[in-house]
Amino acid sequence: MSQQDVHVEHHCEVCFRMAARRCVPCDILCCEIHMKPHQHKGHKVVNPEVKLEELICANHGKPIQLYCNDDKTMMCLMCQMCKDGKHKNHNVVTLETVHAELKDVLKTKCPEVSKSKQHLQSQLDQLQEEVEQTQHTGQSTEGRLEERRRELYQLVDETVDLLMSRVIKRKNKKLSLLMKNMEKRQQQLKSVLEAESLLQTALQELEAVYFMQGFKDLVQRLESVSHFQYLKMAPRTSVGLL
């Protein structure tokens, strides 16, 4: 969403306590106490970080309150009543209505994101387990080869060296593939977690303007992380030769 990420302290312009909300019509910051008279008058109040110019129609300077389903644009009452008839006979609803509807759309994405996260985490756990098993198996094989080298002395030195080289090469090749797969799934999981965080933030967003501005990009991001190709786990095999 478009709200600033950096936290800035705002103070009530009446008593200088910490500001809780900003009154849009009066353009004044208020604490919890001095906010109540504005609410009683039916004034719209928003978070202190909200930029009022982003809630105001650029064409008429009036609060954005409507949404045109035909043009997919937000607008004020004057836009609908404008003489040029741009939105005449269009399907126009309140911003709160489309805000609620699109939140419902996002909620349907929650199971997909959760499922994708669970699949990726499960595969990462399996990969980690196989990495550990591969390392243990490789080390055990190396140890047995070293023991046999000592038993047979120089007679089998070249043969043991050859076998050792094959085991280490196979182990390293498999470990390299496993680590690449882990890195890929970790990146995908990171993307899913980021998308999930943005999804939860959007669902808790109180301001319809910010919600609408980020909705399209958020849906695209959710769809992209919900269609990751899951890794087909191959049967576990030992890297040892003996």
Score class of each variant (00 low, 15 high):
Gln126Asn: 13
Leu242Ala: 00
His90Ala: 02
Gln126Ala: 14
Asp157Pro: 01
Ala195Pro: 01
Met75Arg: 04
Arg170Leu: 08
Glu223Lys: 09
Glu130Thr: 05
Asn89Met: 11
Leu145His: 01
Asp27Met: 06
Glu147Trp: 02
Thr94Pro: 07
Leu218Gly: 05
Ser114Pro: 01
Gly143Ile: 09
Lys88Ala: 09
Asp161Val: 03
Gln187Thr: 12
Glu13Pro: 07
Asn172Gln: 10
Cys76Asn: 07
Ser140Thr: 11
His40Cys: 11
Lys184Cys: 13
Ser224Arg: 14
Leu222Arg: 01
Leu193Gly: 07
Ser2Tyr: 11
Val14Glu: 14
Ser176Tyr: 08
Ala195Asp: 02
Gln121His: 14
Val50Thr: 08
Tyr67Asp: 01
Phe211Val: 05
Val131Gln: 08
Glu158His: 14
His43Lys: 10
Val219Ala: 03
Gln123Trp: 09
Val45Cys: 09
Met74Gly: 09
Glu146Ser: 13
Ser226Gln: 07
Gln65Asn: 15
Arg149Ser: 08
Ala20Tyr: 10
His90Pro: 01
Gln39Met: 10
Arg21Glu: 15
Gln139Ser: 15
Cys57Val: 02
Leu231Arg: 09
Arg148Met: 13
Ser224Lys: 14
Met78Trp: 13
Ser165Val: 00
Ser197Arg: 15
Arg17Asn: 14
Glu101Lys: 15
Val225Ala: 03
His90Trp: 00
Phe16Pro: 04
Met35Pro: 02
Met18Ile: 14
Asp217Thr: 09
Val192Ile: 11
Ala208Glu: 12
Lys36Phe: 15
Ala234Arg: 14
Ser2Cys: 10
Phe16Met: 12
Glu205Lys: 05
Tyr153Asp: 13
Ser226Lys: 06
Met179Ser: 11
Arg144Cys: 09
Glu146Asp: 13
Cys15Ser: 04
Asn89Gly: 01
Cys23Ser: 09
Asp217Tyr: 00
Leu102His: 07
Ile33Gly: 04
His99Ala: 06
Cys68Glu: 06
Ala202Asp: 04
Ser116Asp: 03
Leu127Glu: 00
Glu196Tyr: 06
Val131His: 04
Ile56Phe: 00
Thr201Pro: 04
Lys184Leu: 15
Lys44Ala: 07
Val225Ile: 06
Lys86Pro: 01
Lys103Val: 00
Val93Ile: 13
Met212Cys: 03
Ala195Trp: 02
Lys117Phe: 06
Ser224Asp: 12
Gly143His: 12
Val239Asn: 00
Asn69Pro: 01
His40Pro: 04
Gln118Ser: 10
Leu102Thr: 07
Val160Lys: 00
His87Glu: 10
Pro25Gln: 05
Gly61Asn: 04
Arg221Gly: 13
Met182Asn: 05
Lys62Pro: 00
Ser140Phe: 06
Arg17Gly: 10
Leu189Gly: 08
Gly240His: 02
Leu120Cys: 13
Ala234Val: 15
Asn47Cys: 11
Glu53Val: 13
Lys115Phe: 09
Leu120Tyr: 03
Lys169Glu: 13
Leu55Gly: 01
Cys31Glu: 09
Val92Trp: 03
Arg170Phe: 06
Glu54Ala: 08
Glu194Ala: 11
Thr237Pro: 02
Thr237Cys: 05
Val8Met: 14
Asn172Ala: 00
Lys88Ile: 11
Lys107Asp: 03
Asn172Thr: 10
Val14Arg: 12
Lys83Cys: 10
Thr73Phe: 05
Thr94His: 13
